[in-house]
Amino acid sequence: MLTNRRFVAVASFLVLLALVPLLARFVGGEAFWIKFATRVMIYAIAAVSLDLILGFGGMVSFGHAAFLGVGAYAVGILSAEGIANGFVQWPVAILASALIAAAIGAISLMTRGVYFIMITLAFSQMLYFLGVSLTAYGGDDGMRLANRSRFPGLIDLSGDVTFFYVVLAILIGALVAGHRLVNSRFGMVIQGCRSNERRMRAIGFPTFRYKLAAFVISGVMCGIAGALLANLTAFVSPSEMHWTRSGEIMVMVIMGGMGSLFGPVLGAAGLLVLEEILSSHTQHWQAILGPILVLLVLFAKRGLFGLIDGKSAEKPAGLTGHG
């Protein structure tokens, strides 16, 4: 549920975001800012997708970057094979991420807790190595795309500003769909599974199929983010699937506020801005980012979005989650 203050915060953030291309014209470095804001939004979509299963479903997937890679490679491979048509590329990206999410989910969800964390991590690493070994498609170095997806008769994505607004529209779509989803009957089931799966089964829910469906939905949303990412940079490489990327997406969710849909958007912006600032001061910025993460987890679990309300969310002590 959105409080009034939260609604105002979300609306003003999105309006501000929509004005980035205009504002950038005054600040200078227009191309940089537009691309940077687009990248923030794409990672925001990925983080929202992870939050659906992590924050709402309690499934600690440490392999979400895999779907980023699947979406990106679907676009990249088709493009390399001469199919630049987005009406083909994007559905293929969606289908591929759905299938792979279904396979990974079906195996990982047979287990729980720490096994689930390790298995999702292992499968994403498997896809990473698969990407590295695809020498025909750039292997370790990745490959350059000739151009962005073509949507003949609909829209021309080659301009950065156009692409920016398309990504913004998809982000808003993802937020709206996510909002409907978590408050729907399906969303209640997913949240019930996070809260107390044993009880869910006792009152009659076959929980596995609902969790799997949530995993697939989340994977598809992240796959779309991957397809967008390939389009943004016109470049695809295994590094998008590396496990540190999965870690980063997870950090975005936590930093912004897990279990709130808009939190991950703030988290994506927060982490990427932080990286940008730190890396402009020192090449060893990760030595600073690491301890920041540790402190964040230990002391500020409610995240950026939680700060907007000022008061702590009503939550009973000691009764949350079970790993």
Binding site: V60, V251, I254, H284, A287, L289, G321
Partner: peptide
């Protein structure tokens, strides 16, 4: 006493730190 998610994130932060510190 924290949940696994906190442990994962915190130790992920440690990895970033150590990987960078050896480079330094």
């Amino acid at each position: 006493r924290r949940d696994h998610l906190d442990q994962v994130l915190c130790t992920f932060g440690l990895i970033l730190f150590f990987n960078e510190i050896v480079r330094m």
